[in-house]
């Protein structure tokens, strides 16, 4: 899998928020309404959506630096939360399981959606 390119801010961000509706790349399930999340830059490692099972158990990760920050989980239109792993829950599509689309922090109860892992409509 190629390292995802950084996405152009002006196409997706307006007034520091997501300019467009956010959907699942695979099944089109609506994740966030437009202008409901804050755009932030932060470096964070996230496991790949597709794991190469030949590499035996080891989780392959990539560094992502563009996220939508969602303070209240009920801001999401549709979203899934995994069980807790080391103070995080991973976010998945609510309809098709695709993920991780981002992560949820147990301490702050804030969620972060990776721009490169969702569809902008």
């Amino acid at each position: 899998m190629d390292k995802p390119a950084e996405m152009s801010q002006k196409d997706y961000v307006e007034d520091g928020q997501n300019k467009l509706i956010i959907k699942c790349k695979f099944c089109g399930s609506k994740i966030l309404d437009k202008k409901s999340a804050k755009y932030i830059m932060q470096e964070k490692e996230l496991p790949f959506m597709q794991q190469d099972t030949r590499k035996g158990g080891e989780v392959q990760i990539e560094t992502i630096n563009q996220f939508y920050h969602v303070e209240n989980m009920y801001t999401f239109e549709n979203i899934g939360f995994t069980h807790t792993v080391a103070n995080h829950k991973y976010l998945s599509c609510a309809d098709c399981y695709a993920g991780p689309l981002g992560y949820y922090e147990i301490d702050t109860k804030h969620s972060y959606v990776a721009l490169t892992r969702v569809e902008h409509c």
């Binding site: 695979f26 549709n78 069980h83 399981y97 991780p100």
Partner: peptide, 20 residues
């Protein structure tokens, strides 16, 4: 659509707690 080809091993290994 949990048993279709979008299912990623990573998410299904950890398992889902809840959804909104």
């Amino acid at each position: 659509f949990s048993d279709n080809h979008f299912t990623t091993t990573f998410i299904s290994t950890i398992g889902i707690d809840f959804k909104i």
